[in-house]
């Protein structure tokens, strides 16, 4: 398998695009024709060949361009990457997890040689070669979490576990669905989820926390989350909301298929060995409506899900204002036929 890395942008001229294979492997998040919050966790123990669930840290055709976009965002706002002082060990844990996983899962792209604590890392797609001493931060150009997350798609939070709670004490967050690491760093599980409507009343967070506190090393979990984004923009941060907000109002019947994207997060959760922290990668996948409807099952189902979604959730997910235009676009792709169970194309 050879990945053709795209030369594309996630801002300004928005040249991001999915290849036909990229569309087929898109992690469509709805396994039935309706949606409500749930603790939809399952073991992250591989998955269908070629799907984003197969490897521990999925690398796809957008890898190089996403890392370039992250570097732009960080140059504008270094506060997108922060680590409280007690989290450095967790950063090393995460660096090890990613380097070992990627070098084993993608040997043609990544190589790791370890001689005791003297490590040699090669990242071919990004043209990086680094010799360093494991657990010695002075031998890397930046902290271990920043170093490895500049080379790993998705946002990443490192959660400290203490007092029967999880604390978001470190993170690299440049492709977020409208939340601020700089504001939320140091918060516990209930605090950083506070703005989510309805889910607290459903007991979702109490159950999820209980599960996560017992997460075991070597048994990672995963779930999908989703929202809607206008234009293939990774940096939908609150920090820059006044810059990208106007774009949300540019959706019209003539352009909605191309401009409106379904944004899916593949969230994985990993217990880290030395720090006992949890690594929480939040990997973002984007697919335009016009690409989604090329899979008939997805066109039918997305129409039903978005049509029947409670107003409060449409508001929270930020597309209430565009919902009528979106539904008008999707309706012709929904012939009322039944859909098969599960998320994959027929």
């Amino acid at each position: 398998m050879t990945i053709q890395f795209h030369d594309e942008t996630f801002r300004d001229d928005y040249t991001f695009h999915n290849s036909p294979e990229g569309i087929r492997r898109f992690p469509f998040p709805f396994d039935q024709d309706s949606y409500m919050y749930s603790v939809n966790l399952e073991p992250h123990a591989g998955g269908k060949a070629g799907s984003p669930f197969e490897k521990r840290f999925d690398v796809d055709e957008h890898y190089v361009a996403e890392m370039r976009d992250r570097a732009i965002t960080l140059a504008e706002d270094p506060l997108r990457c922060q680590s409280l002082p007690h989290m450095e060990l967790a950063g090393w844990d995460f660096l090890e997890l990613v380097m070992v996983s990627k070098s084993e899962d993608y040997p043609e792209l990544f190589m790791l040689n370890r001689d005791g604590d003297r490590w040699h890392w090669i990242n071919r797609p990004l043209g990086i070669e680094q010799r360093f001493t494991f657990l010695d931060a002075t031998t890397l150009p930046c902290g271990p979490m920043e170093y490895i997350t500049r080379q790993t798609q998705g946002d990443h939070a490192l959660l400290d576990q203490r007092d029967g709670n999880l604390w978001m004490d470190a993170g690299m967050v440049t492709s977020q669905a409208d939340w601020s690491l700089d504001f939320d760093i140091g918060m516990n599980f209930f605090e950083w989820h506070a703005p989510v409507p309805k889910a607290h009343e459903l007991g979702v967070f109490q159950r999820a926390l209980k599960f996560l506190l017992n997460l075991q090393q070597g048994a990672p979990s995963r779930r999908l989350n989703w929202t809607m984004t206008v234009n293939p923009r990774l940096d939908t941060s609150p920090e820059n909301y006044h810059k990208w907000g106007p774009e949300k109002r540019t959706v019209a019947p003539g352009n909605v298929g191309a401009k409106q994207y379904l944004r899916v997060e593949l969230q994985t959760l990993w217990r880290l060995p030395r720090s006992n922290a949890i690594a929480f990668p939040i990997r973002c996948y984007l697919c335009s409506l016009e690409d989604l409807v090329t899979v008939p099952k997805w066109g039918r189902r997305l129409h039903r899900v978005l049509r029947d979604l409670p107003d409060e959730l449409a508001e929270y997910k930020g597309f209430a204002v565009n919902r009528p235009v979106i539904l008008d676009y999707l309706a012709p792709f929904d012939d009322g036929a039944p859909t098969s169970p599960g998320i994959f194309p027929d």
Binding site: S180, F183, P238, Y241, H242, G245, P246, K248, R249, V321
Partner: peptide, 9 residues
């Protein structure tokens, strides 16, 4: 937290 109220409009 204070967030721009007229970001979209």
């Amino acid at each position: 937290q204070g967030v721009c109220v007229d970001a979209e409009t």
